[in-house]
Nucleic acid binder design. Sequence first.
DNA 1: GGCGCGTGTAACCGGTTTGTCACCGGCATT
DNA 2: AATGCCGGTGACAAACCGGTTACACGCGCC
Lengths: 223, 223
Amino acid sequence: MKVLVADDDADLRDLISFTLAQTGYLVIKAADGPSAVQLFERESPDLVVLDINMPGMSGFQVCEAIRRRSRVPVMMLTVRGEEEDLVRALGLGADDYLNKPFSPRTLLARIKALLRRAGMENNAPLAAGRISLDLEEYTVTIGNGAPVRLTKLELRLLQMLLANAGHSVNSERLLVQVWGHRSGGDRQLLKQLVHRLRQKIEADPAAPALLRTAAAGYKLVVE
Amino acid sequence: MKVLVADDDADLRDLISFTLAQTGYLVIKAADGPSAVQLFERESPDLVVLDINMPGMSGFQVCEAIRRRSRVPVMMLTVRGEEEDLVRALGLGADDYLNKPFSPRTLLARIKALLRRAGMENNAPLAAGRISLDLEEYTVTIGNGAPVRLTKLELRLLQMLLANAGHSVNSERLLVQVWGHRSGGDRQLLKQLVHRLRQKIEADPAAPALLRTAAAGYKLVVE
DNA sequence: GGCGCGTGTAACCGGTTTGTCACCGGCATT
DNA sequence: AATGCCGGTGACAAACCGGTTACACGCGCC
């Protein structure tokens, strides 16, 4: 189990790392935002612990950058009582939030709870109904047709819809999951992406059978 | 979305219930541990908010009892700084933990995060009497009739009324909840919306049987 | 440089939804 | 009876929404 710890306070960083390492986690440390993002990409950890107050690039920005790429559990740290921060962090897709100062035991308990919860629901299926995704090849196959090449964004959109196959997914959530947190306004992006994806996967793009418009979003139809 | 709130402090219980109801959740209240467990079995809510300090049967015991039957998200409440409690609660399988006192905003943000993590923030049909809402499809079904398509505002109005089924809801509150902060006075909007909704759900829109005009507002009649 | 590709942005269309106005009738008060 | 208030109704216009076409930008690659 790999954990990325990002905090500019060396003492705290070491305390956390020590605690986690002692419990058996493999810890990767980052001292600032940019290197956190970079390490995240290189190491793809299973969980991220993120201080909000970092010079250069705030924990919010890091969280946003991470959410643009992954649904890995993120735990944010900040000083006690900044309610705004809490609301904002959770809105950005963070999964938990811990007030400083905290004890190692508390941190461990929450990290375990987070991993337990995440373990319960990651490994999103890559296939449903007649649709199956190939993340390596960047292709999708419908029924027994030929694989169709997808772009990065198309793949991500399809992956999100596939993870909720049969159920409609809110436009807002799709925007967050596919692009990262561009709040509002950017419906056009989603419109376009859906349009382009339909051209590729629908037998008749004018009458979508797979990628249907649903109230407040889209859904993947599976028989 | 059904939420069970268990707390022996009536004021706090009401505050939480009010906040959640206003957001559109259907709230079930319990004043002590045993009735919380009982209500949990009967109502099978989608989320449980649990005070730790309850007479008779502690929140821990309730949490344990619930975990024995279900993996429903559980949020624990207790006084600030009892770290032992936190560790114990998370160890028992609780999913989150909130220190009192907390603000309604914080509670809401965390509950939403919890539901999102559990992957069930939509598609739970709300129902009361012969009326059942499908938030995912934007439809309402009366008795065993065909589902009727609703618009965004109609759905929101019905959701609010459904959350308080059987009780009249003040016009002012409906305005705030459906449209967001409109400086009052704009009753015309509500009049129209009610009118349009009645056209869709009433057998005889001229003699409303479900969506009745009540003192200073409207109410949903459930038998 | 020229090319194709992936992505973002703008503009338009047709249909739906929503906001606004004007008017009606019941009811209580004057 | 006149008045004012309130809820209900019909009609219309403005705003919005999803789909679509077209085009611009940045980028890697011949």
